[in-house]
Write a protein that binds this DNA or RNA. Sequence first.
DNA 1: GTAGTATGAATGAAGG
DNA 2: CCTTCATTCATACTAC
Lengths: 174, 174
Amino acid sequence: MEEGMSEFCIRGGNSGSATGTKCGRWNPTTEQVKVLTDLFSSGLRTPSTDQIQKISNQLSFYGKIESKNVFYWFQNHKARERQKRRKVDNDVIRSENSISINSFTQNFTQLYQVSEPERVMETLQLFPLNSFGESESKNMRVHASDQCRDNTMFSYTVGEQMDHPPLDLRLSFM
Amino acid sequence: MEEGMSEFCIRGGNSGSATGTKCGRWNPTTEQVKVLTDLFSSGLRTPSTDQIQKISNQLSFYGKIESKNVFYWFQNHKARERQKRRKVDNDVIRSENSISINSFTQNFTQLYQVSEPERVMETLQLFPLNSFGESESKNMRVHASDQCRDNTMFSYTVGEQMDHPPLDLRLSFM
DNA sequence: GTAGTATGAATGAAGG
DNA sequence: CCTTCATTCATACTAC
């Protein structure tokens, strides 16, 4: 079944991300993950094809990557963020409601901290006209227009350790 | 990437599962494992969010647990059973190719003991301890169609014609 | 204390 | 978007 695995990727510029393993699937480097994460926390959630292309192109500097990897990354990240929030919320609710057998153990149960308080905004210029506050209301989903592919301009620059060209995702027609 | 998920667990109802150690990750008690295993062998393989919540809630009687633990448990258990079965199948094939016939009894049992009826039982009241009865589908997902394509604002659009058909750009770069 | 194994957690990749 | 599968990483546990 798995004979067709094939493909070794030497992981050229890998710098400590994961154990350099033979990969049949994309294994992002830490830099790639950082950039993607920054983009995400900057509000980018569903990049357009153009943006995907540009991001992918830029990230290829750090190692092998394809557009679909970027696409999937955003899909997964978004979905899991949502899923996590949902599960955690429910857990908190449940634990508040339930009797809690051992009292104090459950006292400071899930502090959880859904990561990413914010702390970003290094040098990202983006969204000329859209707040991207990432919802804060737990059970509500309806925030008007999640983010309508409006982010026409999306310029990203890493401030630290510049061994790569700055990411500029301006769309073509701008 | 780390969430701040450390915490420790006192392992409330622990009764001999493992050496009670401080844990950075969930460490199920024997009772919890037993219940989960029972559920699994009853045919439950992919519990819904609702079921996960209930199971988790019930299992919290035995010790600290979160819903994601239940979720992962089922994911892993199912996956590993499948994995095991796959391995067995391969062995069977191999042995069939090489030596053959007389070992078929053994292979037979191996092959067929794992298959299962895939039925979902919503009545998992194996736990007489809590009476909660409401099955509130609190998980309602508004599914607000946040589909705002390009024509969000300027919707004076000519006629009915959208700019383009609802193309799925997923395949464009694969 | 090291190796090996069982298994919790995470995530890339799809499918629908 | 949501769900599921496959693989992999990380760690608790056991045996030596």
